[in-house]
């Protein structure tokens, strides 16, 4: 089994990665899981089927068909994540980086709101993206925040290498937005906002902090 793309980590089992991604991102379709983990779709699906046979994940059908954890899957992941942090011995470093993440979190949310809404004549109005200078200012602030987030992500990955994957996904979202695919800022499950929210959830899950 090869490592997880973007982390430079050999030896992490794909199944464990998928299990943890489902714990942080909630119910997902195969395509989204593949994007989140960096695995290809065929590998993702085949691993999911193995996990389902083991009773750790399940699949729903219908309009919102998706894969999700069973109770046993959630318990298995919780045990693994706790053991991982215990053996790394880096809880204080992770906690310190999490506190720096929390300083950035409201600013990121402000930026997403500013991307969607802007004051026009004193009225908060849906941003119709007809003013390139306003949009450019918001993107510039995203880039400024991303530079500070990069330092925090480096600290997180220093404490637990699997957090390196978020840096790759955030950079990719911002890169696509910068290249003109502006929906990668705040719309959809591969956007900067969505990846950031998954990172937030992962930190809470990993540190055992309730919402």
């Amino acid at each position: 089994m090869s490592g997880l793309p973007g982390t430079g980590l050999p030896g992490i089992e794909h199944g464990a990665v998928l299990l943890h991604t489902l714990r942080c991102a909630g119910w997902c379709a195969v395509e989204r899981l593949a994007v989140a983990t960096g695995l290809d779709e065929a590998t993702t699906e085949s691993e999911l089927i193995d996990l389902a046979v083991a009773g750790l994940v399940t699949r729903t059908s219908g309009a919102f068909a998706a894969w999700g954890l069973t109770d046993a899957g959630r318990a298995a992941n919780a045990e693994r994540i706790a053991a991982e942090l215990e053996s790394a011995g880096t809880r204080p470093a992770l906690l310190a980086a999490f506190e720096r993440f929390l300083v950035l979190n409201p600013e990121l949310l402000d930026l997403c709101a500013a991307w969607q809404l802007r004051p026009v004549d004193g009225v908060l109005t849906a941003n119709d993206h007809s003013d390139p200078s306003y949009d450019a200012r918001v993107v510039a602030r995203f880039e400024d925040l991303d530079r500070r987030a990069e330092a925090v992500c480096a600290d997180l990955a220093g404490a637990l290498p699997r957090f390196g994957r978020y840096r790759v996904r955030l950079a990719e979202a911002l890169g696509r937005a910068r290249a003109g695919e502006r929906r990668y800022l705040a719309d959809g499950t591969a956007s900067y906002h969505a990846v950031w929210a998954e990172l937030h959830e992962d930190l809470l899950v990993t540190l055992g902090i309730p919402r």
């Binding site: 409201p106 949310l109 402000d110 997403c112 709101a113 969607q116 809404l117 908060l124 849906a126 705040a186 719309d187 959809g188 956007s191 906002h193 929210a197």
Partner: peptide, 12 residues
């Protein structure tokens, strides 16, 4: 508030 996860996703 207006910049919460729910608000950002709802608008998107």
């Amino acid at each position: 508030g207006p910049a919460s996860h729910a608000a950002v996703v709802a608008r998107s």
